[in-house]
Nucleic acid binder design. Structure first.
Lengths: 151, 151
DNA sequence: GTAAGATACTCTCATGTGAGACTAAATTCA
DNA sequence: TGAATTTAGTCTCACATGAGAGTATCTTAC
């Protein structure tokens, strides 16, 4: 492969472009699984998934973990509270930042989605052998680390 | 690594989640290169890059290539026409779909961005050896193919 | 050739997002 | 301790997006 760094840009090989396209498609296709069926928006699903995996945490922590804007977070949290899918507990260490966690119902919802999610991903990566997938994840995390250096 | 498909979901290993995060960061960090300096929005940049790589094409074709909504496309094209960065030529085969291409100025702009883009990506992948990068791109395109099967 | 349907694009409208102001609470520093 | 600064979260506002209607053109089918 010949590359001329000065004048040529191959979009298929250009990560900010092609990775965005693929991630968009992926998120769109996967979100069908929870949007109609469980009436969750993307931000709502992301909050639930993070609370399930990491347990009790504040909105700020969720913002950092899920790379979400604080306004979007605030709205999504509000709506999950209204639906009793999550619980807010006063934080003794900081009265501004209440501690969020999944309610019983929220947990039940999550438990319904998880097997669907795993199945979905299993289908997605079915063309890859496990070594290739592992290698891919590894490279991804290197890229992620690189991006976070500048932050 | 033990995985229980029924009850556990590891977001770090879950592609719709982690790929979206990484792609967002990437796109955000890269877009700084062209947003202020060349006053381009993301959709505008994507149009220019595609026209530069693939030459004359219609708005519909650009929508498909860049996975953009037709409304967003329409607006971005309009603004690039106003700024004389692209040219619309009547399409003899279909009067609805005019043929878009880069103007001389558009080309000049693109030529300024390309080396910056290549440098940027070179920095991004500097932690990877060329074999690893090649493998990564290869896996990415497999995933992309899989996603497009269902479309 | 003409009617019915499909397609390319624009426009309008409803919605989601993110920047920044604002409030309350915590932290720092003197 | 008290004043100044920082921080967490909410709210408002401007803006971008995408769904769907509308228009012009093209295609299909009879």
């Amino acid at each position: 492969m010949t590359t001329d760094n000065q004048t040529t840009l191959d979009l298929k090989q250009f990560l900010p472009y092609s990775l965005t396209n693929i991630a968009m498609q992926m998120s769109e296709q996967f979100s069908e699984l929870y949007q109609q069926q469980f009436d969750l928006t993307v931000p709502q699903w992301r909050i639930i998934a993070n609370l399930a995996q990491y347990g009790e945490c504040t909105a700020k922590e969720l913002c950092d973990m899920a790379q979400m804007d604080k306004s979007t977070m605030s709205r999504a949290v509000k709506s999950l509270l209204t639906r009793n899918l999550i619980i807010a507990k006063e934080n003794p260490k900081d009265k501004r930042a209440s501690l969020l966690s999944l309610s019983v119902e929220g947990n039940r919802l999550h438990e319904q989605i998880v097997p669907l999610a795993n199945e979905w991903q299993a289908g997605l990566v079915s063309d890859l052998d496990s070594q290739e997938l592992k290698q891919f994840m590894n490279t991804l995390s290197k890229l992620s680390n690189h991006l976070n250096k500048n932050v």
